[in-house]
């Protein structure tokens, strides 16, 4: 187990290196250097920037130098925790991302828990009662869940809540807590707002995971160990939970590898519609205003979240499945 985790940890810097290059390429992708385009953008909207400030920025990011030196400058500052400065917001990037990152992670984890809490029972019931009313009902629901884009769900719910109850269900905090420091009351307020984006964000994944679990379980339910457990005199439910569900969960846990990135991706869109204070809307705004270093930093943050998520799911899987521990050791 220890060697397994160590091996996983060792690839981490390599992954982050590759991802930082990708993020850097994305920063460089728009034609012209970002300071010039930013100045042009400003000029278009009727404001201007101090010439000295422009020069200082060029110097800081090494914009007159070759790309690899620019990359090196950017990364070495990131390594010491200096994310740089957002031109658009006129604030340090770390200050902009900090709080939003925390809320992004909280929303992601809440969605993950919701997904598993709902998908597990649905998958188990659908598989053990194959071709029953429940099975068909959930199958239909799953199809609809997968087919509906998250922002549609968000828009429809928003509209229904507004037209029927006259309430606006956006944001993660009530106005009085939006900029307040953390306190117990603020956490309570957050939990009251969190469930809606959590449900909206989790619907698609819940449908997918329930379907995967159903298929896995149907495979497992025909295995000889089921017969053996029955022959031992186990009750049907006890054996279903102990053996096939336990075994069918493993591929589900390994599917976290692609599901976590999906949650973070999805949260970007839902957050935009519901106006949530997460890093998603910030990325969108920075991309539209061509504030490329802010955008690059956020993209890299997303990569980091996904990498950490995958790492945790790998460790969790190894903890669950002795065969994987053995293979890795």
């Amino acid at each position: 187990m220890f060697t397994y985790i160590l091996k996983r940890l060792l690839i981490l810097p390599l992954l982050m290196f590759v991802f930082s290059v990708v993020a850097f390429i994305l920063i460089q992708a728009p034609p012209g250097d970002f300071v010039t385009s930013y100045v042009a953008e400003l000029a278009a909207s009727g404001s201007a920037m101090d010439q000295r400030q422009i020069e200082a920025l060029r110097e800081l990011y090494g914009l007159d130098q070759p790309a690899y030196i620019q990359y090196f400058k950017w990364v070495s500052r990131l390594l010491v925790g200096d994310m740089g400065f957002s031109l658009d917001f006129q604030k340090p990037i770390s200050e902009l991302i900090g709080q939003r990152l925390l809320l992004t992670v909280i929303l992601g984890l809440a969605t993950l828990l919701f997904t598993f809490a709902v998908a597990l029972p649905i998958g188990i019931i659908s598989a053990t009662r194959q071709y029953s009313f429940f099975d068909y009902f959930f199958t239909v629901l799953n199809y609809i869940g997968i087919a509906t884009p998250t922002f549609m769900t968000a828009l429809i719910l928003m509209w229904l809540a507004f037209s029927n109850f006259g309430i606006t269900i956006t944001g993660l905090f009530s106005p009085e807590f939006a900029n307040a420091p953390w306190s117990f009351a603020r956490v309570v307020d957050l939990s009251q707002h969190l469930w809606l984006p959590m449900v909206i964000l989790g619907l698609d994944g819940t449908a997918r995971l329930a379907r995967i679990l159903r298929a896995n379980l149907l495979d497992e339910l025909n295995k000889p160990y089921m017969e053996m457990a029955r022959a031992k005199g186990m009750s049907e439910w006890a054996l279903v939970i102990k053996y096939p569900v336990r075994l069918a969960i493993n591929p589900l846990v390994s599917s976290l590898g692609w599901y976590l990135p999906l949650i973070f991706s999805g949260s970007l869109i839902v957050a935009t519609v519901l106006n949530l204070p997460t890093i998603g809307p910030l990325l969108l705004r920075s991309l539209i205003s061509q504030d490329m270093f802010l955008a690059g930093t956020i993209v890299l943050t997303y990569f980091g979240l996904a990498v950490i998520g995958t790492l945790l799911s790998d460790i969790f899987l190894a903890w669950l499945d002795p065969r994987i521990r053995m293979e890795a050791a």
Binding site: K223, P224, Y225, E227, M228, R230, A231, K232, G233, M234, S235, K242, Y243, R246, L247, N250, L320, D321, P322, R323
Partner: peptide, 24 residues
């Protein structure tokens, strides 16, 4: 029936590998 199965009448299955759970 469950009190008899595994207790009074026991089974030795055909495929021992597949009849044992790999994760327990």
């Amino acid at each position: 029936m469950r009190a008899i199965r595994g207790n009074e009448i026991a089974l030795i299955p055909q495929e021992p590998m597949a009849s044992l759970s790999p994760v327990h």
